[in-house]
């Protein structure tokens, strides 16, 4: 089975700084999108179970070579970087077409993407790819079984621990959720790492002139609507009480309120509450 894993290069969201005055990003450390660690791992796990190969693909400028090299060091069979300088501000629609073009050349049984990236978070890549390829898709996958009969059982994560289970058939595009597996660790100069060192990241210059889809969405600006006080939670700075609250998921969240009565009454109460909050 040939699995293509799509990896995204992003600016480390925990480290990146946003300058409100110049509206520019600073302190950019490019890293692999955290969810894509799980995507790559899932591809490698499927290869262990079913054989075949794992091909890592990324639409990224030169810095993308780093994450693709890491994918090779972690055991991917091939790694391909796709790029054209005009893709710098491309939207999901455009990028998905670039990936689709390359998929035609590479060939695939299964395409795995992150369900939603940590930076843009549009969660559009999976449906867009499925549309272009005209194949089955599912996203938000938290558990995955691929049988030797090319049948897939995929579990989607819903809220409050609820799950939805799908059955689909290869070829397919799946959007992987964080936590689906435990990403492996490959020590520097270990056996798999050494094998990865012998492989090279391939580069494909993308011919975007032939792509029929134009840029549908344009990113105008990136601003901070309201300055955030807390960028992230610094766990070490929390008190024990706050830590316990965080573990219970109570930190920074109002207690849930139940509105009782007939549907009309309950709706009215909700509206009242919202009006009050907006005042």
């Amino acid at each position: 089975m040939r699995t293509v894993v799509c990896l995204k290069l992003i600016a480390d969201p925990d480290i990146v700084e946003f300058d409100v005055t110049t509206e520019e990003l600073g302190n950019i450390h490019t890293v692999l999108d955290p969810v894509d660690q799980y995507v790559l791992e899932e591809g490698l796990v499927l290869r262990e179970k079913l054989g075949g190969e794992v091909i890592a693909v990324s639409v990224a400028p030169g810095a993308g070579d780093d994450i693709l090299r890491d994918a090779l060091l972690y055991g991917a069979d091939r790694a391909i970087r796709l790029w054209h300088d005009d893709l710098r501000c491309a939207d999901t629609w455009m990028v998905s077409q670039v990936i689709r073009e390359s998929l035609d050349n590479i060939g695939f049984d299964l395409v795995l993407c992150g369900a939603r990236s940590r930076d843009a978070g549009s969660a559009l890549m999976v449906p867009a790819l499925a549309h272009h390829l005209n194949i089955a898709s599912a996203t938000g996958i938290i558990d995955l079984e691929v049988g030797s009969d090319r049948k897939i059982i995929a579990h989607k994560k819903l809220t409050k621990g609820e799950r939805e289970t799908y059955s689909l058939e290869l070829p397919a595009v799946l959007g992987i959720e964080e936590g689906i597996n435990e990403p492996r660790y490959v020590a520097p100069f270990s056996r798999i790492y050494r094998e990865g060192l012998r492989k090279k990241v391939e580069f494909l210059e993308v011919d975007i002139t032939g792509l029929k889809g134009r840029q549908l969405v344009q990113n105008l600006r990136f601003t901070q609507f309201r300055p955030r006080v807390k960028v992230g939670i610094d766990i070490s700075a929390l008190s024990m009480q706050e830590k316990l609250k965080m573990m219970r998921g109570e930190l920074g969240r109002e207690k849930e309120e139940l509105f009782e009565g007939s549907p009309e009454e309950a709706a009215r109460k909700v509206l009242d509450k919202l009006r009050e909050a907006l005042k």
């Binding site: 925990d14 480290i15 990403p183 492996r184 660790y185 490959v186 020590a187 100069f189 270990s190 056996r191 798999i192 992230g232 766990i235 070490s236």
Partner: peptide, 28 residues
């Protein structure tokens, strides 16, 4: 064992965290 990629679960997590965030706690 490390060369062969065989780890204890806890050891593996700690090593991965050190590789990513240079500390075994896994805090950024």
């Amino acid at each position: 064992l490390v060369y062969e990629g065989i780890y204890d679960k806890g050891h593996k997590k700690a090593l991965k965290r050190v590789a990513q965030d240079f500390n075994p706690w896994g805090i950024r």
